[in-house]
Nucleic acid binder design. Structure first.
Length: 267
DNA sequence: GTGATAACCTGCTCGC
DNA sequence: TGCGAGCAGGTTATCA
C-alpha cells in the first residue's frame, strides 16, 4: 500500500535510471487503467517528480506520464527487472537496453499520459492538498481545511485535500502521535498544531526508513522498507499502547480499518 | 456541492 | 487437505 514515503523512495531510486532516457515501443495490459502507458512510446524522459502518491515522468514533448501505484503497484528499472509474470501491467523499453516495468497484482493502480500540468481528468491529483514538507502546509492550513468539512478527520486525511500523501498506515500513526480521535469531526487549534507536527514527523520517518513493507511493497531496487518496525499504532490492535498501556482497538471507520488508543485518543 | 457507499481487484488467512 | 468466506484499501463512480 504505497503512500508518500514509499512513492518518494521509489522516485529517488528510479530517477537516475530513467532521466535522459528515451522510451521505445511500450507494452501494456489491456485494462483501460493501463493502456495509456503506450502513449509514452518514443518520448524522452526529462524528469521524475512526485506529487502526493503520484509519480510524474516529465516527457520531452510537453506531456507527462503519470503513474499511481494503487495498493500493490511496483516499479523497477534495469536490465532484467522482472520475469514476464501475469502481474506485469506495463513495460517501457529504454534506449540504453534497460526497461522500466510496472507490476500490480490487484490492479488498483493507474497509468495516464496527459499534457504537462493538465490534471483536469485526474480529479484527486487536480485537487490535491499541499505537500507535507511544503511551507504552504501549516497548522493554520490544516485547521481550516478540516473545519471546511463535517466528515471524520481520518476520512478527510485519506481524501488528500488537507495534505497530500497520507494513506491508512501513516494517517493512523499521525493521529495516534497527535492524540487525536480518528472519528472526530472537529479539530481544535491546539490539536491541529499537534496533528501538523505528527504528519510531518511520521512521513519524514517513513522516508528515512525507505517505506513500510507489510506485504507487497518493495523499493525500486526490490528491497523491503524498514518502517514497519517503527509503527506504534497501525496494525497493533489488541496490543498495549506505547504511551499509556491501554489496549489499542480497531474498528471500521468509513470503510477503512482504523486502529487507535481509546485512552490517549479520547473522543 | 457534500457526504455516504459500492465497486474495482486478487492473494492471503481463517474456520469448517 | 480442500473449500468458501472474509479481509486488505486508494480511487472513482453513483446516489441521496
Amino acid at each position: 500500500m504505497p503512500e508518500l514515503p514509499e512513492v518518494e523512495t521509489i522516485r529517488a531510486e528510479l530517477e537516475p535510471a530513467v532521466t535522459t532516457r528515451t522510451i521505445g515501443q511500450a507494452e501494456s495490459h489491456p485494462s483501460t487503467k493501463f493502456t495509456e502507458a503506450v502513449h509514452a512510446s518514443g518520448a524522452g524522459i526529462e524528469s521524475l517528480t512526485r506529487r502526493g502518491k503520484y509519480l510524474l515522468f516529465g516527457l520531452d514533448d510537453d506531456r507527462e506520464l503519470i503513474v499511481h501505484l494503487g495498493m500493490t503497484g511496483q516499479l523497477q528499472a534495469g536490465a532484467h527487472p522482472w520475469p514476464h509474470d501475469d502481474y506485469v501491467r506495463a513495460r517501457w523499453p529504454l534506449d540504453d537496453g534497460s526497461e522500466l516495468v510496472y507490476r500490480d497484482v490487484r490492479r488498483f493502480g493507474r497509468i495516464r499520459v496527459v499534457p504537462a500540468g493538465d490534471y483536469s481528468t485526474i480529479t484527486t491529483l487536480a485537487q490535491l492538498g499541499p505537500e507535507p514538507f511544503d511551507p504552504a502546509f501549516t497548522p493554520d492550513h490544516l485547521h481550516r481545511a478540516i473545519r471546511a468539512s463535517s466528515r471524520r478527520i481520518k476520512t478527510q486525511l485519506l481524501g488528500q485535500r488537507p495534505v497530500a500523501g497520507l494513506g491508512n498506515i501513516y494517517a493512523d500513526e499521525a493521529l495516534w502521535q497527535a492524540r487525536v480521535y480518528p472519528g472526530a469531526r472537529k479539530l481544535s487549534r491546539p490539536a491541529a498544531e499537534r496533528l501538523h507536527l505528527a504528519i510531518v514527523d511520521v512521513l519524514r520517518t517513513g522516508i528515512e526508513n525507505r517505506g513500510t513493507t507489510l506485504r507487497d511493497y518493495r523499493t525500486a531496487s526490490g528491497e523491503q522498507g524498514t518502517n514497519q518496525f517503527s509503527l506504534r499504532c497501525y496494525g497493533r490492535s489488541g496490543e498495549p499502547c506505547d504511551r499509556c498501556a491501554t489496549t489499542l482497538r480497531s474498528r471500521d471507520l468509513d470503510g477503512r480499518t482504523t486502529t487507535w488508543c481509546p485512552s490517549c485518543q479520547h473522543r
